[in-house]
């Protein structure tokens, strides 16, 4: 894994990244792929919930909330603004 990959839950609000790698397995992986999180998909962190977790992400035009457990299994390459 290259050094500039970060798990999605470390992507700050307002920043975007491209999906590079999923570490989730089985059903959880399927669900993420079904939501369109395939290689190279752009994801933007939209906002945190009041307690800071879950976090809402913009994925292919939809707003999807993920808990940190799920987001930490999605590795992205941060896009420089």
């Amino acid at each position: 894994m290259s050094a500039n990959l970060i798990p999605l839950d470390k992507l700050p609000v307002g920043a975007s990244g491209k999906v590079r790698h999923l570490t989730a397995r089985g059903n959880a992986r399927r669900r993420m792929l079904d939501l369109g999180m395939i290689y190279d998909t752009t994801i933007e962190t939209l906002r945190k919930s009041p307690a800071g977790d879950p976090v809402a992400y913009q994925i292919r035009g939809a707003v999807i909330a993920l808990r940190s457990e799920e987001a930490s299994k999605i590795f992205i390459e941060s896009i420089k603004q």
């Binding site: 939501l35 999807i64 909330a65 457990e69 799920e70």
Partner: peptide, 11 residues
């Protein structure tokens, strides 16, 4: 343990 959680926030 809690299972995977995805929640859509529709418009």
């Amino acid at each position: 343990l809690p299972s995977s959680f995805t929640l859509e926030l529709p418009p």
